[in-house]
Each structure stands twice: as structure tokens, then as C-alpha cells.
């Protein structure tokens, strides 16, 4: 009884540990997926905006389409919004700093371009602007990679948490199975078999008047019951003989 009580408490305790860890795991997984999705979306927005600005600027430089200025400005604002959102999310400060630095260089170059219209040609676009554009897009890609790498690290930590969540339950369950098998075995030896032997002995006595001679080893209620049945059968046989 005591053993089962302990086992019950342990199972409940293990269950609580598992529940706690699984809850933690569930919220962590949700956060992880949300963060990953957000960082992917923001990176995409930044890359799209930069691409948009790049195309607009190419048109302005090569074809002199000044009406594309508004599209350029709109894409620039979209970029700033995405970058601000990324800054508000926790982590990757190093990669975001790199984006800020690359963006500042890029903006400085663009401002220079618009302040001196007509001076910059395709050569400037390919060399000066091209390298700045490449630095900016590379910084955004680095941010994306860093986000995915941190995802991997977090996933490993989640795996460990998942392990910790299920292991107490599994170990306790294994112990419970061993105890249940042992309990069934011991019950069979100490209670079921003696009762079966006593029943068979009594049946033989009642049907065929064979002497009741069942041996039960021990010092418990079953042994006492067996002794009393033996006494009773002896008494009954004596009465029958009289």
C-alpha cells in the first residue's frame, strides 16, 4: 500500500514536472516560430525595399526618369519601417548595427546623388553605388543567417527541454510497470496460490472426505485462516466419526 502511495505521488510529481516543462516548451516553440517568421518577413521587406530603390535609381541615372523619385522615397520609408521593427525585436544587435552602418553609408551616397543632379553617371552607379548597395544587401543577408542560426540554437535548447519534460514520466512509468509485475507475482505467491490451495483442500474434504492438509508458509491472516480451517476440518471429521 505504502509502495503504491509513493508510486502514485511520484507519478503525480513526474506528471507535474512534465506538464511544467511541456508548457514551457509549448510557449517557447510558439515564440520561436513567431520570431523566426517575423525576422524572415522583415529581412524580405528590407531586401525588397532596397531592390526597389536600386531599380528606381537605375532608371533615374540611365534614363533620367525623375518621376521615379517618389517610388524611391516610398521604398526608402518601407526600408526604415522594417529596420525599426527589426530593432524592436530582441537579439542580433551586432547584425542590426551592421545594417544601420551600411544604410547610413548608402543614404549618404544617395543624398550626394540628389544634391548634385546630372553629375553622376552609370560609372558612378556601377562602382560607388554598386559597392554600397552590395554592402547593404550583404548586411541584410547576414541578419537573416544570424536569425536562422539562433533558431538552430534555440531548437537544440528546446530539444533538451522536451527531453526533460518526458524523461521523468518515462522513467517513473518504467518503475511503475516493474512494480506492478512484481506486485502481481508476489500477490500470486502469497495470496492467490494459498487461497487456491485452501479451496482445493476444502473441496476434497467436502466431496471425498479427504483430510484437509494444506501447508501455508507465513505468519499472516492467510496462515491463521488456514490453521482455523484445519482445526474446523479436524473437528468435523471427529464429529462424523462419532
Amino acid at each position: 500500500m505504502l509502495g503504491f502511495l509513493f508510486l502514485g505521488i511520484m507519478l503525480a510529481f513526474s506528471g507535474m514536472i512534465s506538464m511544467f516543462q511541456l508548457n514551457k516548451l509549448s510557449s517557447h516553440t510558439q515564440n520561436l516560430l513567431n520570431n523566426s517568421m517575423k525576422s524572415m518577413e522583415l529581412s524580405k521587406d528590407m531586401l525588397d525595399a532596397t531592390q526597389e530603390q536600386n531599380t528606381s535609381l537605375l532608371h533615374i541615372v540611365v534614363l533620367g526618369h525623375n518621376q521615379l523619385d517618389s517610388a524611391f522615397t516610398y521604398a526608402g520609408k518601407a526600408f526604415e519601417r522594417a529596420l525599426n521593427k527589426a530593432s524592436n525585436m530582441s537579439g542580433h544587435t551586432l547584425e542590426l548595427d551592421l545594417i544601420y552602418r551600411a544604410r547610413n553609408d548608402y543614404n549618404r551616397l544617395i543624398n550626394d546623388f540628389f544634391s548634385t543632379p546630372g553629375e553622376k553617371d552609370i560609372e558612378w552607379f556601377m562602382e560607388m553605388y554598386g559597392s554600397s548597395y552590395l554592402a547593404l544587401t550583404n548586411a541584410i543577408k547576414d541578419y537573416m543567417v544570424a536569425s536562422q542560426q539562433s533558431m538552430l540554437q534555440k531548437a537544440e535548447s528546446l530539444e533538451r527541454n522536451a527531453y526533460r519534460a518526458i524523461m521523468p514520466g518515462i522513467v517513473t512509468l518504467c518503475v511503475a510497470i516493474i512494480i506492478v509485475i512484481m506486485f502481481a507475482f508476489l500477490m500470486d505467491i502469497y495470496y492467490i496460490r494459498p487461497i487456491q490451495d485452501m479451496t482445493n483442500g476444502l473441496t476434497s474434504f467436502l466431496k471425498h472426505k479427504f483430510p484437509y492438509n494444506v501447508e501455508v508458509d507465513g505468519n499472516d491472516e492467510i496462515t491463521k485462516l488456514n490453521d482455523q480451517i484445519e482445526e474446523l476440518s479436524t473437528l468435523a471429521r471427529n464429529r462424523m466419526n462419532e
Binding site: G3, I17, V171, I179, M182
Partner: peptide
Amino acid sequence: FYPLILSFVLTAILGIFPMIFVR
């Protein structure tokens, strides 16, 4: 600490259990 305490309790139950039944 907690893994060791839980292990202690489970092992102790496994040890005590047959002693309750077997003389």
C-alpha cells in the same frame, strides 16, 4: 539535485516493495 532525489525515491520504492511482502 532533482534528478538525484527522484532517482532516490524510485530506487527506494523498488527496494522496499519486495521487503513488504517477502519474509
